[in-house]
Design a protein around this nucleic acid. Structure first.
Length: 809
RNA sequence: GCCGAGGUGGCGAAAUUGGCAGACGCACUAGCUUUAGGAGCUAGCGCCGCAAGGCAUGCGGGUUCAACUCCCGCCCUCGGCACCA
């Protein structure tokens, strides 16, 4: 007996909407539970099956919490500003502002078709002026706290597209869109001082209930390393080069110094450097070098000797050479290093290429008198050699001692950089700053927000580091808010990641015109109880969001500093063993599946094909198994719900199975193991079908409740059938509890092993003693035969499971 | 190179603290049912073997009465970061 998914989906979607089934009272909810899923970028032709997968997985968790009596808030919106959407508009040859209207409609239709319990009244779009007004406000708060500043920086530049790109759009050194090489270009940019929060961002990680994988990724990205700053004097000059090192114990082995192409010592010692032109040429070219070139070089080092100047090793007093090389990065540490080729692989390769001395100062086999000749750097620990009076000292101990010996300072460095926030693009919130010749940078007054993004026909970046808005005098020609003199509005827009760094605050108060959010609500609903999203965002988005939350805390606007109590990344859906992509032609269109099989079947199939946190392989063939299952559920309930239980004898066995399923499914949902929860539902249905006369209405009700998070439509329809006209929605119907007493079994199947191999099995009572069981086992014909002529050495008995007879050899 | 995850039938995958390897589903085979197509129902289904039995969780060792699970050494796949001193 098949059911018509079309009619019941339509019916219940309307009923849920009408009865506000998924709209919690944001102001007065008693048991708030914020169930958040990362909102999508509406950048493609529509929602990808991968997005659907993620949303369904998040929704099941939300529905489960709602049935447990929580006031679940599951909002939805669109991360519609930004390069993704803009690129799609360019490709579709449409204006992003006009296209947004269309994609919005399309996305929301698709999102409503999957049957999620979204709070539709609270939806938001980041390109809505009512939203980005507050994104701009947020920028001003950050500015006010002295955490926004401008500086020159090397940014990714695609000359073919004539635009800067975000780091995440540079794939293997190539432009994500046109696949041409990316070069670095120096432009003055806006930054947020994320590094000022580096220690707090790192420290708090320990207390988060996140998957360990993501926590490790965050720690690595922050990249704390402890070491020392040490000055190397330039011989015959007042100048000095300060280096950062994590291995001050190797300082006697520092046989040269390397500075980055941007380092100030090149300019400062201009007159002493004999080959200044050559050096400058190298520095310019290194800067122009594309990412792709760097990858091609594959560790091959380049550099130029600074002729005419030398540095002094402060430990040994030796005069050593100075190089400029692009393997030293200007953005990390001091932009200069002491090179210890014996104990650092990069320095080793450079030294080999330029034929520089390699002095081993850490010996792994001390006190052996000789150290091996190295074919690669040794970066482990050991004892100091060739280090004057420090010989024989353990390398770990020598770090601090040698640092003070050469007058160095202990120093902690972080790998994380400040957040480059400005984009020379059109489709984003204009940065709310005004530049005045006399007053410098002046913020737009909060009461004048939003700085509206004007409709501009020529929205494509033309290049030269100039934004599209830079061509629109009507936009940028303004008076200085402070002195009323001639001034110019900032024409860059902010990064998409800023839009998405605070959206979960706004969901709580989307209609608030006076403030971005209200303290009572944030206190009630935040931090987010459960956050689910893609693993690709486990570094940047989560880090930026944490940073913004910390800033809001320090501004006194909220009273917590971590936004997400719990975060779990969902897995990746693949098809035919490969990531879905248009170029491979293996993209699955979710709409067709929903139309053909129904949202319930589609949801369940997606969740059944593998563990949610690990993803899985999407095959067309698999969904029919779920369709069969749902049809059988339908047929069974329709046929049996009016009959009631007619056989008390086998009732107990069935009760045990139901309670076992409740326990299993409850625990599985809590741990996002939806695939095994669904299989438990199938097992339970099989048990029902084996003895329909034992199944009561209560049993059916419990079954439907367990099914409800996965298949919300069919379970609601059958619920109304079972419960009659007066029944309220199953989705507020309460989650079934299991009772331990039903899980206990009087009999169990004992496995009999001989030397660890299964030979026999039979039913025994759980209350029988080991001795009694042993006697029963040894008197079984099959076992007796197998033991003829053998000596039993020992017997291992595992209660409730097995017995293993060990024979002597 | 570094970090992380993983490797189990024809396929997607299961397997509390070590305790029946392959649950559940797909595909397949046989039978029933159906005018046919489709669907449904019943049974079977890791590999070799007529059977008894043997062999099986990437490869090689080890611990144990017992190893997918723990330990040591390799190989491969996927994801992330990538000259971070």
């Amino acid at each position: 007996m098949n059911y018509s998914h079309h009619s019941i989906e339509k019916k219940w979607r309307a009923m849920w909407q009408k009865n506000k089934v998924y709209e919690p009272n944001l102001k007065n909810a008693k048991r708030p539970f914020y169930n958040l899923m990362m909102f999508p970028y509406p950048s493609a032709e529509g929602l990808h099956v991968g997005n659907m997968y993620a949303f369904v997985g998040s929704d099941i968790y939300g529905r489960f919490q709602r049935m447990r009596g929580n006031d679940v808030f599951e909002p939805i919106g669109l991360d519609g500003f930004g390069i993704h959407s803009e690129n799609y508009a360019i490709k579709a040859n449409a204006h992003p502002m006009k296209l947004a209207v269309k994609t919005e409609k399309r996305f929301y239709e698709q999102l409503s078709s999957i049957g999620n319990g979204f709070a539709w009244n609270e939806r938001l779009e980041t390109y809505d002026p009512e939203y980005y007004k507050w994104t701009q406000w947020l920028f001003l708060q950050i500015w006010k706290r002295g955490l926004a500043y401008r500086k020159k920086a090397l940014v990714n530049w695609c000359s073919s597209c004539a635009t800067v790109l975000a780091d995440e759009q540079v794939i293997g050194g190539m432009c994500e869109r046109c696949d041409s090489e990316i070069i670095k270009k120096e432009l003055e940019q806006w930054f947020f001082s994320v590094t000022k929060y580096a220690e707090k961002l790192l420290e708090n990680i320990d207390g988060l209930d996140w998957s360990e994988k993501v926590k490790i990724a965050q720690r690595n990205w922050i990249g704390k390393s402890e070491g020392a700053e040490i000055d190397f004097k330039i011989v015959g000059s007042k100048e000095r080069i300060t280096v950062f090192t994590t291995r001050p114990d190797t300082i006697f082995g520092a046989t040269y110094v390397v500075v980055s192409p941007e380092h100030s010592c090149v300019e400062n010692s201009k007159d002493q450097i004999l080959n200044y032109n050559e050096v400058q040429k190298y520095a310019t070219e290194a800067r122009k070098k594309s990412e792709a070139d760097r990858i091609r070089e594959d560790g091959e080092k380049t550099g130029v000797l600074l002729k005419g100047i030398k540095a002094m090793n402060p430990a040994s007093g030796e005069q050593i050479l100075i190089f400029v090389a692009d393997y030293v990065l200007s953005g990390y540490g001091t932009g200069a290093i002491m090179a210890v080729p014996a104990h650092d692989q990069r320095d080793f390769r450079f030294a080999k290429k330029f034929d520089l001395p390699i002095t081993m100062v850490i010996c792994p086999h001390y006190p052996e008198p000789t150290c091996p000749i190295l074919d690669d750097a040794y970066s482990g620990e050991g004892h100091l050699v060739a280090s004057g009076k420090f010989n024989g000292m353990k390398s770990e101990e020598a770090r601090g001692i040698l640092t003070s010996f050469v007058g160095g300072r202990k120093k902690t460095t972080y790998r994380i950089r400040d957040w480059l926030i400005s984009r020379q693009r059109y489709w984003g919130p204009p940065i709310p700053m005004i530049h005045c010749e006399r007053c410098g940078w002046v913020p737009v007054s909060e009461k004048n927000l939003p700085v509206k993004l004007p409709f501009v026909k020529k929205f494509r970046s033309e290049g030269g580091g100039k934004s599209p808005l830079g061509m629109v005098p009507a936009f940028y020609a303004v008076k200085c808010p402070r002195c009323k003199g001639v001034a110019k509005r900032e024409t860059d827009v902010s990064d998409t990641f800023l839009d998405s760094a605070w959206y979960f605050f706004r969901y709580l108060d989307v209609k608030n015109k006076k403030a971005p959010f209200e303290k009572g609500r944030t206190k009630k609903w935040l931090p987010v109880h459960m956050y689910i999203g893609g693993a690709e965002h486990s570094v940047l988005h989560l880090l930026y969001t944490r940073f913004i939350t910390m800033v809001l805390k320090d501004s006194g606007l909220i009273d917590f500093e971590e936004p997400f109590a719990k975060f779990h990344a969902h897995g990746l859906l693949i098809k035919d063993g490969a990531k879905m992509s248009k170029s491979k032609g293996n993209v699955v269109n979710p709409d067709e599946y929903i139309k053909k099989y129904g949202a319930d079947a589609f949801r369940m199939y997606l969740m059944f094909l593998g563990p949610f946190t690990e993803g899985g392989d999407f095959r067309d063939s698999g969904i029919v198994g779920i369709t069969r299952f749902l049809n059988r559920v339908w047929g069974f309930v329709v046929k049996n719900h009016g009959l009631g239980s007619r056989n008390q004898e086998s009732m107990e066995v069935l009760e045990g199975k139901i309670h076992h399923a409740i326990k299993k499914i409850t625990e599985d949902i809590e741990n996002l193991r939806y695939n095994t929860a669904i299989s438990a539902l199938m097992i339970l249905l099989n048990a029902f079908e084996d003895c329909p006369s034992v199944v009561s209405v209560e049993h059916i009700k419990n079954f439907l409740k367990l099914l409800a998070p996965f298949a919300p439509f069919i379970s609601e329809e059958l619920w109304s059938m079972v419960g009659g006209k007066k029944s309220t929605t199953i989705h507020h119907g309460g989650w079934p509890d299991y009772e331990e007493r039903f899980l206990q079994r009087d009999m169990f199947t004992l496995i009999i092993q001989i030397n660890g191999k299964v030979r026999d099995q039979f039913e025994v009572s759980s209350h029988d003693s080991q001795k009694k069981i042993e006697t029963m086992v040894l008197s079984r014909d099959k076992i007796k035969q197998l033991l003829v002529g053998k000596v039993v050495q020992r017997i291992i008995f595992v209660p409730g499971r097995l017995i293993n007879i060990v024979l002597s050899a």
